[in-house]
């Protein structure tokens, strides 16, 4: 982890306004922000750890815990909402046995919701590991998760 982190930091100058892009790149690499990485990044950008922590906890994108092998994002945008997203979320929670914001014990699955994916014309939508799946129905969810198992 250390080596990879060093590599990422080497392409930056160490200015405080690089904090967010660095956090984004590190999270992209590791799937989340490990505590040790946070400390190093704060030092590198010359901001107090408290401020780095404040930024990380402010923005919805940042995660302090690992995600599962399959990370599922359910859209709770307006169009998805009126076309049945709450039920889709319920079905997924039921099927996986975890609630929004949690990762399964075996680290296979994690579940999160976002305000909008931006594929509103084909709502309701979910993303599985960054791939957008459109026009979801409860039946498709059953198919989805049995196919993957």
């Amino acid at each position: 982890m250390e080596k990879r982190l060093e590599e990422i930091l080497s392409s930056y100058e160490g200015k405080s306004d690089e904090l967010i892009p660095i956090l984004q790149q590190v999270q992209s690499e590791f799937g989340y922000l490990p505590n040790e990485a946070l400390i190093k990044i704060a030092k590198f950008t010359r901001v107090p750890e408290s401020r780095a922590y404040a930024v990380v906890t402010f923005y919805a994108q940042f995660r302090l815990t690992p995600i599962g092998k399959k990370h599922i994002v359910v859209c709770r945008g307006t169009s998805c909402h009126v076309r049945g997203a709450p039920r889709i979320l319920e079905q997924i929670e039921k099927h996986l046995g975890i609630k929004e914001g949690q990762t399964s014990a075996d680290l296979e699955y994690s579940l999160e919701t976002v305000a909008c994916i931006g594929a509103c014309g084909l709502s309701p939508c979910i993303m599985v590991n960054k791939k957008v799946e459109a026009k979801m129905t409860p039946k498709k969810i059953v198919k989805f998760f049995t196919k993957d198992e």
């Binding site: 859209c75 945008g77 307006t78 305000a115 909008c116 931006g118 509103c120």
Partner: peptide, 11 residues
Amino acid sequence: DEGDPGAFMNR
């Protein structure tokens, strides 16, 4: 940033 849920014009 296009934060409005239900909007994707900019995207």
